[in-house]
Design a protein around this nucleic acid. Structure first.
Lengths: 351, 351
DNA sequence: TAAATATACGCAATCGATTCCGTTAATTAT
DNA sequence: ATAATTAACGGAATCGATTGCGTATATTTA
């Protein structure tokens, strides 16, 4: 199989008797090239099958019109939607998207970070791995004026753009909802506390209890490593075997919440009557499973779009590391069957 | 914020009194450079914060160590797992991954195709959009010797690497399973028939019926456009209102199967006793919902890994368009509650 | 009509890494 | 001890697009 020679602006220049400069300017709609010439050149480019070489342009301009994405895992509903939002926004602006996943390991995050840097990305969108504490691997981007947008799992000791949800309020509202449903012994499935989103959710949980005059019982607060299905299963089993088991669970994610419900069912514990459950994320599962899972919905795709826009808007202006714009998005408590104990009661009240 | 100057091999050359050629060779472990010099140069590079510029290297070599991915949508469980498999394999080999989604529109597929080409990707992994018929936009990759791997939704009129599952057998087995469970009026939710995966699944369905001597009833074969939840809902409602409703459904994806089950429940139709359902894909929902959904499992992540490996292996050798290696992976029928009518009967038979 | 300005384009350097040819010095073979 | 290798490195062109500066022609202004 012979490889065809690629058409470059030099080929176009020779063919049309123009200089490469003129070809380049014409293809970029430069104002000093006449409309007629631009049309002529563009048509010839199309006809000869010319395709720009991003590598060459990128080298010259020292950037690649590419947004780098650094997340923990792609195949999580939230992350997939986030990426989808990023890709859609970037694509519309003519940007490409490079992805990489850390699998929640610090070491991978660092090496992926370097790989993305080596590709001279225009900006970086990051959701931190579970392990990450040290932030030094991001410094080189700042030094080069490459914008970083932290999404969802953000650092609190690093100045940069951030796009987050109000985890505190969400945690507070979710817990308050359970209290409103008559729960008095509410357990919490907490995530790794050095990741601020989990810390905030827990704070919200604690404050909701305090405000309602409910005691805080340490034995009802379970600290998870990864909030996995297995972990959730184990934790639920343990909780339900306690002499005074909880009558409600606020889980920091849906996966663990689902496992709690399934475990409860297996153990013959009625949901929501004996155990009300609310999760976090509004994964697709939540609305399908039975009983359907109450949860906190996350505008994942929108967060992706906003993050991408941050980077797109950034280009042109000089990067000011002191200017840290933080976007905080609202969440929504989605009440479904897994926590709805007082449906009729509430309805009769309002009517 | 001042931008630090980047360190290049020229800076290293000046600092260490070597030529740029030597620096480059040392960093690439070229055999004509002494071990001692390599160590010296690498340490200095590390110390001075040198980072290679992929754009420059890519321009010179006319490739970017990047794999391009062109799929319909990222936030589908199957696709997210596919990408995850691709990314993991590519990353290990030092390759980056560029992603783009067509949202199942031909026009987007073409423009994304061009965008990826412009970035001089090393290889392309594609799952076709629902709309795609014309394949001309892929020709330029072939002309340049850039390998293309089609995954899952593959063309049948284009020579290239392909990674697929045996959709015919899967469709046959799924239908056979329903027949074994005593179903005699089995409906099929079919996908767009110009996408071969759906065509094959339907063929398997038809042959299973024929082989068992069951009649093929056109009114029980519903042709979907996108196999969405809404479409599934509508179709199920219609089917169940028929004078002689089906007693089984084989859906070409899980989403529509889930909608069928939920619709049946709403209409008071018992699953699986009155209506047995089997889906396709083994989405996370399948095992969680109630009744749990029988389905065909798809080795998504593995398909991604294999696709990436195809491209990695390809480099070096000359591309031979006549050599079209097709990888066919097996599937597994996952029997869960939604189709299990004869559980006890079967068990007593085997024991 | 001469001067001033605008229009439309060309020249050549540049981005950073790679690699084909050398060249020099060190080692081995005879 | 001299020729023949080998090892270790340098020079300079190259990849393709961009852009500051320069120039010739056309157009406008006074």
């Amino acid at each position: 199989m012979k490889i065809k020679k690629e058409v470059t602006i030099y080929d176009l220049a020779k063919e049309l008797n123009y200089s490469p400069s003129t070809i380049s300017r014409a293809l970029n709609n430069h104002k000093s090239i006449s409309k007629k010439t631009i049309k002529l050149i563009k048509e010839a480019a199309e006809g000869m099958g010319y395709r720009p070489n991003n590598l060459a342009a990128g080298l010259r301009n020292n950037k690649s019109n590419t947004i780098g994405v650094l997340i923990s895992r792609i195949n999580r509903p939230f992350m997939a939607s986030l990426i989808s939002g990023i890709e859609e926004t970037a694509r519309k602006a003519g940007y490409n998207v490079l992805i990489s996943q850390s699998n929640d390991m610090y070491e991978n995050e660092v090496s992926n970070c370097n790989a993305l840097y080596d590709s001279r990305i225009t900006g970086l969108i990051v959701s931190l791995s579970m392990e990450t504490v040290d932030m030094a691997h991001f410094q080189k981007f700042i030094d080069q004026g490459i914008p970083i947008v932290f999404v969802d799992r953000v650092p609190d000791n690093f100045n940069s753009y951030k796009v987050v949800i109000d985890n505190y309020t969400a945690g507070y509202s979710a817990t308050k909802h359970l209290i409103d449903q008559g729960c008095t012994r509410i357990a919490h499935f907490a995530g790794a506390q050095h990741r601020n989103i989990y810390e905030e959710r827990k704070k919200g949980y604690l404050d909701a209890l305090r405000e309602s005059g409910l005691p805080i019982r340490d034995e009802l607060i379970i600290h998870f490593k990864t909030l996995s299905f297995e972990e959730g299963n184990k934790a639920t089993k343990k909780l339900l075997k306690m002499p005074e088991p909880p009558d409600g669970i606020f889980s920091a994610n849906d996966t663990a919440a689902v496992s709690a419900i399934m475990c409860a069912k297996k153990m013959g514990v009625e949901v929501p009557q004996e155990l009300a459950v609310i999760g976090f994320n509004d994964d697709p599962i939540a609305s399908i499973m039975q009983p359907s899972l109450s949860t906190v919905s996350h505008p994942a795709s929108k967060m992706g779009a906003i993050s991408a826009k941050r980077i797109l808007n950034h280009s042109g202006q000089n990067y000011d590391a002191d200017l840290t714009e933080i976007t905080v998005l609202g969440t929504e408590i989605i009440v479904r069957d897994s926590s709805l104990r007082r449906a009729r009661l509430l309805r009769s009240k309002t009517s």
